[in-house]
Nucleic acid binder design. Structure first.
Lengths: 158, 158
DNA sequence: CCTTCTTGGGTGACACATCACCCATCGACC
DNA sequence: GGTCGATGGGTGATGTGTCACCCAAGAAGG
């Protein structure tokens, strides 16, 4: 029922709640992270991904795949992080056009401090107020939406 | 179990799926909206809120409450939209410091075209792949997280 | 060898979001 | 009437995300 044109009350409520929650949460999370650790969410994403690597290093395109970011976004982000001394760019041995991105000592220290704080934060503001059953539903739902998004055409940049 | 420090597999999966979905969805949604209607998500939020008003007009602070935005964000957004001719600022009759924000004819036309397209889009990429039960769970979950967020201290700007 | 396509990466301009800070007016209290 | 905090709104700088576009080095085919 109500196949198009407008949203039913049930749908409207859920969509609005989700949108609002998601925005507020991201804003709140970013602020908290910035205050506690001096890192933005974008910094955190990049640093923690490198950090999980044995040698704290990744090719740019590998980093891009793990983060699911677009080219330009990552390029700009890396450039900013280089000026802040969090990561460094190194030429790639086996591919002349390739670039390696590596954690600097400063970046390593920053992310090492930030991770436990951030995990504790996520638990406090999110995981602690969600039941396990809700959590599972959210996971299934999220994966379904992601799958469905992938079905469309890609913007050819990624 | 696993009270802190690290996330369990169940938690990690759900959190990651949610984060990824939310980011991808917002990006995808913004791009779609921009292509189909020339409006950004921020534009859409402002315009549709004004549009729902009888006189297509709101005080800035009322707009702020409905959108749950911060002061500066809305001020800047309105300024940009004024230069684009989507809305206009008018002095407020009863309060010398107040400002009224009103839809321009161009803004009205844009949002009138955009709303059905956007609703149809939301249905296609989101609502259609989520079961009613999942949707209800999402609503409850979102409202719980929102509630919990509000419990902390506010940054005094809002 | 020479074109042509793809891939890895980058740049500059611009929209958006946040921070620190400012100004004017209202309202309350003395 | 004068001070003072709260309220409504704004500015400038900086960080972040996206778009359009560019360049160099492989890869594929003739």
């Amino acid at each position: 029922m109500n196949g198009s044109g407008e949203l039913g009350e049930r749908e409207r409520r859920a969509w609005y709640a989700f949108l609002t929650m998601q925005e507020d949460l991201r804003r709140h999370m970013n602020r908290q992270l910035l205050q506690d650790t001096g890192l933005s969410l974008a910094d955190y994403a990049v640093l923690s991904t490198l950090w999980m690597q044995d040698d704290n290093t990744l090719r740019v395109y590998e980093l891009r795949e793990r983060l699911r970011w677009e080219k330009t976004r990552l390029t700009h982000q890396i450039s900013r992080m280089v000026t802040r001394g969090q990561v460094e760019r190194n030429p790639c041995a086996d591919d002349p056009r390739g670039q390696q991105v590596a954690l600097t000592p400063a970046g390593h220290e920053a992310i090492t401090k930030a991770v436990p704080l951030h995990i504790e934060y996520v638990r406090r503001v999110f995981l602690d107020v969600v039941t396990p059953r809700q959590l599972d539903t959210l996971a299934v739902l999220s994966e379904a939406v992601l799958d469905n998004l992938g079905t469309g055409e890609d913007p050819a940049d990624t």
